[in-house]
Amino acid sequence: MEIADLLKKAKKGDDHAFYLLIKIHRDRLLKVAISYLKNEGEALEALQEVTFRAYKSIKKVKKPEYFSTWITRIMLNYCHDQAKHRKRMTVTDLFEEYNSKEDYEQKIVIEDALSKIDDRSREVIILKYYHDLKIKEIADILGSPESTIKTWLYKGMKSLRKELEEGSGIHV
């Protein structure tokens, strides 16, 4: 069944159609969650919460072509909130949760660098490099013009380089 049909039914209260709608987007949503939250348990919790939030406001989605963007944005917002809660946790703690020991140091360099650059740029980098989204899709999800996204991306990559150069001094 097409997304348009499912959305129509889901808006009328068809739970199974709604379930299928989320299920179609399941892997994408989980990938976003994992790239922010870094473990299975929290990603599953995120998926549950995003399903909950989406169910409550499904009627707000006017056009089927916006559904994917809309639900991804809900997931991003959730991950942001979670990230704020966890600010006090150090990057190292985060990695101990999921990282295999052999890749430990290298991983910290890139992830540590990512965590230090500004929020918007990090988001654009994650969406582009972890999720293969096009600049246009990122612009839709973040609700900003493509030119702005490109600026953030460029700025972010420059900051990332700076952080990596500083970071590599520590790990040599």
């Binding site: 299920k23 399941r26 299975e40 998926l47 919460e49 399903t51 169910y55 890749d103």
Partner: peptide, 20 residues
């Protein structure tokens, strides 16, 4: 590395059901 974190499909579907 992040993609290697596999999430069980069954648990994911359960999470969706719990959300609903």
């Amino acid at each position: 590395k992040i993609e290697k974190i596999m999430v069980s499909e069954e648990l994911a579907d359960q999470a969706i059901l719990k959300g609903i």
